[in-house]
């Protein structure tokens, strides 16, 4: 009887571990696959215009429906400067963490302009805020378009709607003038 109870308890513990792994750990790997790379492996902080298959994989949208770009980011050692140049149409820019949480999002109506610079930096921890007045000063100097996010790694997704497929070339040209640059701290 004791042996049966022991093995039942082992099975339950293993079940709990695999349950939590499936829900908490596996999605992070799935997100990294979806992002098409790991920002920690050196391919971060540059803008890439997505081709048809990559756009389909990331967004499930064909190249006749939308134009998209991405920028894997790693802001563990500095501040990311996103220079976005969007066509005059319906667009959105969304930052996701490498765990799939949406950190920041904006579209054409919210922005009011199609060309802008967005600064993305790591939010200071409570300890950093308590121990340094320097970081407070730096934050106070921030100009308008800046965002502090709780994660160091993630992806910025640039999305532009197409009214008809022939717009793709023109909109892709405009979007490809966007850039992502890391400004070391």
């Amino acid at each position: 009887m004791r042996t049966i109870l022991f093995w039942a308890a082992v099975a339950l513990v293993l079940g709990a571990v695999s349950h939590l792994s499936y829900v908490l750990i596996a999605p992070t790997y799935a997100m990294q696959r979806l992002m098409g790379g790991n920002p920690e492996e050196g391919n971060a902080n540059r803008f890439i215009l997505l081709d048809g298959p990559e756009q389909m994989r990331l967004l499930g949208e064909t190249e006749s429906e939308a134009v998209a770009g991405k920028c894997l980011f790693d802001i563990s050692k500095g501040e990311l400067s996103v220079m976005a140049e969007m066509p005059d149409t319906f667009w959105s820019l969304t930052l996701y963490s490498d765990k799939g949480a949406d950190l920041y999002t904006i579209n054409d109506r919210q922005a009011g302009i199609d060309k802008f610079k967005l600064s993305v930096k790591r939010a200071p921890s409570i300890m950093e805020l308590l121990s340094s007045d320097q970081s407070e000063r730096a934050r106070a100097l921030g100009d308008g378009w800046s965002v502090e996010v709780p994660e160091s790694y993630g992806i910025a997704v640039f999305w532009v709607a197409l009214d008809y497929p022939e717009q793709r070339k023109l909109f892709a040209e405009t979007l490809s003038r966007s850039s992502c640059t890391l400004n070391p701290a």
Binding site: V23, L24, A26, G60, T94, K99, A101, T105
Partner: peptide
């Protein structure tokens, strides 16, 4: 509200899709 439920997040990511962004 933004997706904070890990089960909801897992639904999208495990099926190879980005979770929808709040407001978009």
């Amino acid at each position: 509200a933004s997706i904070r439920n890990p089960y909801v997040n897992a639904h999208y990511l495990m099926f190879g899709r980005l979770p929808p962004a709040l407001g978009q």
